[in-house]
Design a binder for these strands. Structure first.
Length: 154
DNA sequence: GCCAACGTTGGC
DNA sequence: GCCAACGTTGGC
């Protein structure tokens, strides 16, 4: 089992939105970056654990936990001309973009802001800190454990 | 395949 | 709104 961090802008799709889906299962779609796509397609498996990160908002940081519940499948938005994620260069025979389903697990008890992640010696090597701009990124087991401790204690 | 120009992400 | 750090596009 592996660990990942998924970024979302909360006014577009927040941890609350995921929780409010029926059965708490939501489609993680709209990924239009090849590196992130390759992770979704090749590396992320059912049962993998996900940190739900809120980006581009007043309080950026880790807001909750989720679990991968489906294999990757073609992102329907790429075929929808009305969607901002429509991709005219993709075709049904050979879809360019994939998505998958995730299930809500929990909100953090204590929100973990990016500023705090950057200051924490156990977390300063996170892709989130080192690299930043990548909407799907790997998290190590020790990072996962440290984040669990910081967000779920008390 | 190179690379300049342009576009996007995302924290601040 | 700024801007750094990418990523993408397209001419050659």
């Amino acid at each position: 089992m592996n660990y990942w961090l998924f970024k979302s802008e909360p006014y577009a799709y927040s941890i609350d939105d995921l929780k409010n889906e029926s059965d708490g299962v939501g489609r993680w779609d709209g990924i239009r970056n090849y590196q992130a796509r390759n992770l979704l397609r090749d590396d992320i498996k059912i049962g993998d654990q996900v940190l739900f990160y809120h980006s581009s908002c007043k309080n950026v940081g880790i807001a909750g936990f989720a679990e991968v519940t489906s294999e990757p499948y073609p992102d329907p938005l790429q075929f929808d001309p009305e969607s901002k994620y429509f991709d005219p260069k993709s075709d049904l025979e050979n879809p360019r973009w994939v998505c998958l389903d995730i299930q809500y697990k929990a909100h953090v008890k204590k929100f973990l802001p990016l500023s705090q992640i950057k200051q924490n010696s156990e977390l300063e090597e996170m892709v989130l800190v080192k690299r930043g701009r990548l909407s799907v990124q790997p998290v190590t087991e020790s990072e996962w454990d440290a984040i669990k401790k910081l967000t779920m204690n008390d």
